Simulated assay, not measured.
Amino acid sequence: MGRILFLSLMVCCGSAFANPPDLSPLERLAQFRTAQAFDCRNVSCKRLRSCAEACYKLIQCGQKIRDRDNDGIPCENLCSRRC
């Protein structure tokens, strides 16, 4: 499960984690801890906190409703590109 989560985060937000701008190791780790806090409860896009959470729900949880127009961009109020 941990590897799948990591891989989905890299696909979803790879550029955000590839070269973080001058973040300490603890700050970088905090990004991953936040991602682990996501769950598969079905809530509206308006209640999600980030694009990463929307991608997690789309990819990991299989919530196709996150991408209503089937363009690969979940919760377009949060995300501007595909996961």
Rank of each mutant, 00 (worst) to 15 (best):
A37G: 11
C13G: 05
M10A: 04
S50G: 05
P21V: 14
R41H: 15
L23S: 02
G14R: 00
L26Q: 10
C79A: 09
M10C: 13
R28Y: 08
P74W: 01
C61I: 01
A52L: 02
Q63R: 04
F32N: 04
R41Q: 12
V43H: 08
P25I: 14
A16M: 03
C79P: 10
A18C: 05
D22V: 10
D67S: 09
D69Q: 04
F17C: 07
A54L: 06
I59A: 05
D69A: 12
N42D: 06
C55H: 01
C51R: 01
Y56D: 01
V11W: 13
C51T: 06
A54H: 01
L58D: 03
V11F: 09
N70C: 10
D39Y: 13
I65Y: 15
F32W: 15
R3Y: 09
S80H: 14
M1I: 14
C79R: 02
E53D: 15
P25D: 05
N19Y: 14
L48P: 00
C13P: 02
L58R: 05
P20K: 13
G62Y: 05
C55D: 06
R47P: 02
L23V: 11
P25V: 03
A18P: 11
L26I: 10
E76H: 07
C45W: 08
D22F: 10
N70P: 00
R66E: 07
P25A: 03
V11P: 08
I73V: 15
C83R: 05
C40T: 14
R41Y: 14
R81L: 03
R68V: 02
D69G: 10
E27M: 13
R68D: 08
N42H: 15
R33I: 12
I73R: 01
K46N: 07
V43N: 03
R82T: 14
L78E: 08
R28P: 01
K64I: 13
P25K: 06
C51D: 11
C12S: 04
I65S: 12
C13A: 05
L23F: 13
S8W: 04
E27P: 08
Q60G: 01
C12P: 01
G72Q: 12
A35E: 05
D22K: 12
V11H: 12
G2T: 15
M1W: 14
D69S: 01
E76A: 08
S44D: 11
A54V: 12
Q31E: 06
R33N: 09
C61M: 12
K57C: 11
C79L: 12
S50E: 05
G2N: 10
K46R: 06
S80C: 10
R66P: 02
C12I: 06
A16K: 14
G14F: 08
